[in-house]
């Protein structure tokens, strides 16, 4: 089971899908494009715990976190 976590006003929203389900993967990729298209940044973690930004959908990522565009304060 893989998860897409989107930061929002409730804290976060989570979307779950099975990596071996083509329909779930297609839906996850559509969500990825939708959120990055809205200016969200997508990040994943390697098994060692290192963070990585991703620009394209990674079907192997167990967890993808989306956070809103950052601006200067």
């Amino acid at each position: 089971m893989a998860t897409q976590i989107v930061m929002d006003s409730t804290g976060d929203s989570r979307h779950f899908f099975e990596e071996d389900d083509p329909k779930g993967l297609a839906e996850a990729e559509r969500r990825f494009k939708m959120f990055t298209g809205r200016g969200f940044t997508a990040a994943t973690r390697t098994p060692a715990g290192d963070l990585k930004l991703i620009r394209t959908f990674d079907p192997t990522a167990k967890e993808t976190l989306f956070y809103p565009h950052l601006v200067g304060g």
Binding site: M7, D8, S9, G11, G39, P68, L70, V71, G73
Partner: peptide, 9 residues
């Protein structure tokens, strides 16, 4: 000073 453009916790 930098922060997400949307209000977050």
């Amino acid at each position: 000073c930098f922060l997400p453009e949307r209000a977050l916790a």
